[in-house]
């Protein structure tokens, strides 16, 4: 039963990946111009019409769309992503350099966001003062409206340039991740906290909570043992969806902090219509997105025993 479920989900995932690949291919083809035109018509190179025609022929830029699609798809299936016209390196080399830092940043960012959201939600539940409670509960709306780049620049200006605590230029490997992680985590933490707070409020009105309290359990115990588990499910769903937000945030964060990563790679590729790179980025992001959501789906039964029995595990 579980194996069948897994196979089903994996099949769906592959279909989604193929669709993402094809859709991005079509969209990129629809854009006016292409990377070779942009690169070689650059007046800095000062090439003549004949030279450009030769280069286009050498890159196979003028073959039919269908041929290019087959060529690209086969390349991807065999792990050959092609060359970045703009950067002058194989796309795989660009990915190898840029994927790990983004994964690190995204991983730390989401962990920090989750921590922040849980702390906020629980602190606002446990506090005894009403004013602090409403202050804490309104923080997420503030966070959500802070633009990532503004937050990043503010943190750099104050923490690095004014206070001199952390260098932005040439920092240590982990030291350099502190500010970007915060920048990325704060706006992501906001919706998580909002949902968690609302769900806790909702679960707290359930009769079983009253029963537990009546039996003499403390507020903290009830919150942790009974409420948290029930409130975390919707949050988990949102966390999967927020992964997209995380990637978007990484684009901006990396540019502001001058970090290398998938974000800055994408930004440069978009600017130069570097199709091969964009195609690879789409597929990699889609893979990650699909994978995260698969993991989220598989985590449901862990938190909810009712689902476990339905799957027969």
């Amino acid at each position: 039963m579980f194996i069948k479920y897994l196979a089903n989900r994996t099949g769906q995932a592959l279909l989604v990946l193929w669709a993402a690949f094809t859709a991005s291919f079509v969209l990129l083809q629809l854009l006016p111009g292409d990377a070779i035109l942009i690169k070689f018509l650059n007046p800095e190179l000062g090439l003549g019409p004949q030279e450009i025609a030769d280069i286009r022929a050498a890159y196979g830029a003028d073959t039919s769309v269908w041929q290019q699609y087959q060529h690209t798809l086969l390349g991807f299936l065999s792990g050959n992503f092609g060359y970045s016209v703009q950067a002058g390196v194989p796309v795989s080399q660009g990915l190898a350099t840029n994927l790990p830092p983004t994964l690190r940043l995204a991983g730390l960012g989401s962990a920090a966001a989750l921590l922040l959201a849980v702390l906020l939600a629980f602190a606002s539940q446990l506090t005894r003062w009403g004013w602090l409670r409403s202050a804490l509960q309104s923080l997420p709306s503030l966070f959500i409206s802070v633009p990532v780049f503004w937050l990043g620049i503010m943190l750099i200006q104050v923490v690095s340039f004014r206070l001199g605590w952390i260098p932005v230029i040439n920092p240590g490997k982990w030291q350099g991740l502190v500010l970007p992680t915060l920048t990325l985590a704060i706006p992501i933490a906001a919706p998580l906290a909002q949902i968690l707070i609302r769900n806790i409020d909702e679960v707290l009105t359930q009769p079983f909570v009253a029963v537990a309290r009546a039996k003499g359990a403390t507020r903290q115990w009830v919150l942790w043992k009974h409420v948290a588990r029930n409130a975390v499910l919707p949050t988990l769903t949102i966390a999967g969806v927020l992964f997209g937000e995380l990637l978007a945030g990484a684009v901006v964060t990396e540019a502001v902090f001058g970090l290398n990563g998938l974000g800055s790679l994408t930004q440069q590729a978009v600017g130069n219509q570097d199709t091969a790179v964009l195609q690879a980025v789409v597929v990699v992001s889609a893979t990650a997105f699909v994978f995260i959501n698969l993991v989220v789906d598989l985590l449901y039964p862990v938190f909810d025993p009712r689902l476990r029995s339905r799957l027969g595990t």
């Binding site: 780049f149 620049i153 503010m154 200006q157 004014r162 978007a248 502001v256 930004q267 978009v270 992001s285």
Partner: peptide, 22 residues
Amino acid sequence: MFSLKKSMGWRVWGASALALGV
């Protein structure tokens, strides 16, 4: 996919962040 619109206003925001920093 990625939202690139966000990058549009950097300069303006950068300037205001700078002003605040100062």
